[in-house]
Structures are given as C-alpha cells and as structure tokens.
C-alpha cells in the first residue's frame, strides 16, 4: 500500500485572540491526487495551508507532507513543497527571470538545470517576452503566473496553491487549468483552494467542502452531486420590488408546504430556487399548486438544472459562496 503524500490528523488552530480558524480537520491526499478545498471566506483554508507549508504552528494535531512532520521535520517538507499563496508574492524590483532563479537557488537547483528550467517555465507561463522586465511592472495575471512558475522551479512533489486562479480573466483561467491538469498528470500531488465551483468541478479528483474550520463533506465531484439527489428548479417571479419579492418568497413557501417531492426552498433576488426530486414528473403538480386561487404568484420563467457543486455547497453549508477574498491579515503595529 502506498502511503498518502499529505496526512492531516485532527488539526486545530486557535489564533491569539481566540479565533478557532481550524477546528479539527483530518484528511489524506494520495500520491498524484488533486484535492480541492472549497469554502467561503474565513472557512480556514489559508490557515490550513500555512500550517502544511510550515509557516504557521498548529495549536494541536499533526500534519505530514511527503512523509515528514511539518513541525519537527520542516526542512524536509520544504524541500519537496511548491507553494503559491493567495496573493502573489514577488520581488517587485527583480525581473521575472530573477524571481524564478532566486527561488530555484534557495532550493539548490543546479546552475545548468536552473537555466533550462527557468527558460521552460517562462515559456510555459507565456512570460518569455517580459522575462527581463521588473516584476513590479507586471499585470495581476502575469504576477499570478510568475508566482506559479516560482512554485514549480524545483519540480516539487507536492504543490500547494491557495486560490491559484483568483484575479485571472476567463481565458487565462482556462489556460491555467490546462497547465495544472498537465502538472497533475505528470504525477505531482496537488492541494488547491478555490471559491469557484466550476474550477473545483473541472479540476479536482476530490473536493473537500470546508466551513467554519471543519470539513463538512468530501468526495469526488460526481459522488457529491449524486448525493444531492434532487434537481434544482429555478422560478423567476414577477414582483414590484424587493419587499414584494420577500412577501412572494413567504407565499411560495406556504403554497408548497406539504409538497412531498420538495426538499428545499432557497430565496433568490429574482425568485426562488427549489430542490425537487425527479423534477420532470413533479413540475405539473408544482405549477398547479402555485396557480391556486387567491394568490398573485406569477411565474415568468422556469429552468430545471441537474445538481451542481453549487447545490452541494448550499446543502452542506446552508449558504451560497461569496467571491471576495483576502489572506494577509492587516498587521496593526504602533
């Protein structure tokens, strides 16, 4: 049996001040696997990653990367780890090439190999033309790609990426997905965090949904979606304003009370989203109920969708994901 590349057991992190950012997380990542952490702001993703990357001491619990303990064998972990944090961190006064080379040197990549590898990565990330410009002049997307190149320069066995596609345009995002897929196929084990359902769905072999410092559920995207069972039915409702819409939400709830195919009702600004088992069969009955006399619920649009990772997220966390993010705490000195 091959042992996991990342083994995390009962990890807890309580920040000074009492925030329980990570609250007993356990998971394994098998060699070659690509695990995605999906979670809302403040779920504890970055905190977990900083512990795995030997940058932060856990309050309790153990974590091993590539077989080495992150606290007692930090140097061994670092040698095998490629890391890209949520905000790209670069030396603004060094060129793209110099940025990659410095990190390569710190990882003791040999001179000839370093030159070859740097050329290769610049090419791969589409940065060859700007390799001699200062990184401080790069656009956000270019910084992101340069940061990733730095993480890859020493051919790490484990790659940990905190929101790798945050701030990329759709085109660059897809290009980066393809690149990450290729790296993953080459056998690199990967752990990444994301806010994007689509990203988790497309890229990850396995997804762990994390909320309030705990893993609430994990599995392959397909299994998680299958676990939802219900289809999602989106109803667009006619309303004269947000207050009116709020009233309609309540009305719909009332009208659908006792409807046995219905699993949940989620209010939306444009109407409601319903989770309904076997929607194809249930819709006629649904429409009959909404059409009951004496009510003014007017359905102006209807869409039926198969379960998405979005629905999985809503089911397990009770809310939708938000997309703003920040990982650097503001340090308040005097």
């Amino acid at each position: 049996m091959i042992s996991p590349i990342i083994e995390v057991e009962n990890l807890v992190k309580v920040y000074p001040g009492g925030t329980r950012a990570v609250d007993g997380i356990s998971f394994n990542v098998e060699p070659g696997e690509l695990l995605g952490f999906l979670g809302p702001n403040g779920a504890g993703k970055t905190t977990t990653i900083r512990i795995l990357a030997t940058l932060l001491a856990a309050t309790s619990g153990t974590a091993r990367v590539a077989g080495f303990d992150v606290t007692t064998q930090a140097a061994d972990v670092r040698r095998r780890l490629g890391l890209a944090m949520q905000t790209p961190t670069l030396d603004a006064f060094a060129t793209g090439r110099e940025n990659i080379e410095l990190i390569g040197r710190m990882h003791r990549v040999g001179r000839a190999e370093l030159k070859r590898r740097t050329d290769e990565l610049l090419e791969l990330m589409g940065l060859t033309d700007v390799a001699r410009k200062l990184a401080g002049t790069y656009s956000g997307g270019m910084r992101r790609r340069l940061d990733l190149a730095c993480a890859l320069v020493h051919r790490p066995r484990v790659l940990i990426l905190d929101e790798p596609t945050e701030g990329l345009d759709p085109q660059s995002r897809i290009a980066l997905w393809e690149e990450l897929e290729r790296i993953s196929r080459d056998g690199t084990t990967m752990l990444l965090t994301t806010h994007y359902m689509e990203e988790a769905d497309r890229l990850c072999n396995r997804v762990a949904i994390i909320d309030n410092g705990r893993i609430v559920v994990d599995g392959t995207p397909a299994n998680l979606k299958a676990g939802i069972g219900a289809d999602s039915v989106t109803l667009q409702l006619e309303a004269s304003g947000s207050e009116d819409m709020a009233r309609l939400h309540e009305e719909v709830r009332g009208l659908l009370a006792g409807f046995e195919s219905l699993e949940s009702v989620t209010p939306e600004p444009f109407g409601v989203r319903l989770a309904i088992r076997d929607a194809g069969r249930a819709i006629p009955e649904l429409m009959r109920r909404l059409d009951r006399n004496g009510h003014d619920v007017h359905v102006i649009g209807l869409a039926v969708g198969r379960p998405s990772l979005d629905d999985v997220f809503v089911k397990y966390t009770g809310r939708r994901i938000r997309t703003e993010a920040a990982d650097q705490p503001l340090i308040l000195g005097w």
Partner: peptide, 14 residues
C-alpha cells in the same frame, strides 16, 4: 514581512 515575500523565502529550505 507584510506582503508575504518573507513567507515565500521561509517556505524554502534555507
């Protein structure tokens, strides 16, 4: 230290 570059260096085996 603030922008995270020091962390990037600290995550290398130096």
């Amino acid at each position: 230290y603030r922008n995270g570059y020091m962390d990037k260096l600290r995550a290398t085996p130096i």
